[in-house]
């Protein structure tokens, strides 16, 4: 680990000013991903600006009935918050499905959105990786990739985004707000993560030096009936090999509104808009759910060893939406 300077910021303008446009500086939140990456040598910052004490730790209702979550709210506080659990239960479930109790106590909302892939090649400096070292090649395409992307990947990178929280936020049309030296900005989560293309090292639409200040959840009555399911290779404390956030408003057997997002299938949380389009206005049956999943997954391009993810994701769509339908009928 390279030695580095450390500054603790006390207000947002101060934090942004401290970081400036220094490409070798990083904001430090909970540190659960950044410090780990510094230990493996993937990140070698010269300066850390500690933003944990910024006054961004609130969760408040917005005037229109949405929710605003500050960037330094811990994962634990987000998942425990009564309004999150009442209005966006899938978000609480997604957060609780991630990491461990200790890590959720440390990790922040802002940091969660910026966490890096857990691809074993990305975190190992001895192996080629286009995301870590542009132009060095992707080791996973021909190598170990059974937990890599089936959607939206390119030959340049097949890594997946590891977040659970982000999957639920994506389903609920969350908007990321940030601050730069030039003032505030915002980005819908749907546009926040950049397509992989030929530049997998460019991951988000954040301007250089920008500090995430929070996430805004628009009002979404459908979210009150939502769930998150995560499948992984042990029962807890592991990253997903497939996950789904779903919300469903079904009346008289007809889908009025539906939200579906997938995790562990792409370089970003994957909003299943095609599936939603196919389902809306149609019957809430297992056959319809499967057909909608197939419509979304028609674009899937599995690698040699991860075709099971297509099946898994499809099965999760059917299982979760069926469950929500049964709950609505009760």
């Amino acid at each position: 680990m390279r030695d580095f300077g450390y500054q603790r910021a006390h207000d947002v303008p101060g934090a942004v000013a401290l970081l400036g446009a220094d490409p070798d500086a990083r904001y430090l939140g909970g540190g659960t991903n950044l410090v780990d990456l510094m230990k493996t040598g993937v990140e070698r910052p010269a300066l850390l600006v500690d933003v944990r004490e910024l006054p961004l730790d609130g969760i408040e209702s917005t005037d229109d009935g949405g929710l605003r979550v500050g960037a330094t709210v811990t994962n634990s506080d987000l998942a425990a918050h009564p309004e999150v659990r009442r209005r966006y239960p899938a978000l609480a479930e997604a957060v609780l499905a991630g990491a461990s109790g200790q890590l959720r106590n440390m990790a922040t909302v802002g940091g969660n959105l910026l966490q890096r892939t857990r691809c074993g090649y990305f975190t190992d400096l001895s192996k080629p990786c286009n995301k870590r070292t542009p132009g060095s090649g992707c080791s996973a395409v021909e190598g170990e990739h059974h937990n890599h992307a089936i959607l939206g990947a390119t030959a340049h990178c097949v890594a997946i985004h590891p977040s659970d929280m982000g999957v639920a936020l994506t389903a609920f049309d969350a908007v990321v707000t940030y601050e730069t030296v030039d003032g505030p900005g915002q980005s819908p989560l749907a546009e926040f993560y950049l397509p992989v293309g030929e530049t997998p090292h460019l991951e988000t639409a954040l301007p250089p030096g920008a500090l995430i200040t929070g996430v805004t959840l628009p009002p979404a009555p459908v979210a009150a009936r939502s769930r998150y399911r995560k499948v992984r290779e042990r029962a807890s404390y592991a990253f997903a090999i497939g996950s789904i956030a779903g919300a469903l408003d079904v009346r008289d057997g007809v889908v009025r509104e539906v939200r579906v997002a997938f995790g562990a299938v792409a370089s970003r949380p994957w909003r299943a808009r095609e599936a939603e389009r196919v389902l809306t206005g149609g019957p809430a049956t297992a056959e319809a759910f499967a057909a909608a999943a197939d419509a979304e997954l028609a674009a899937a391009e599995p690698l040699a060893d991860n075709a099971y993810k297509v099946t898994l994701t499809r099965n999760l769509v059917v299982a979760l939406l069926t469950e929500l339908t049964e709950e609505a009928a009760r």
């Binding site: 991860n306 099971y308 299982a319 929500l324």
Partner: peptide, 19 residues
């Protein structure tokens, strides 16, 4: 016995009951 080795492609039948 990993999930990818156990999983079966039978979404409709398997979707009967949720968690």
């Amino acid at each position: 016995i990993r999930p990818d080795r156990v999983i079966e492609d039978r979404a409709t039948e398997a979707g009967g009951s949720g968690a």
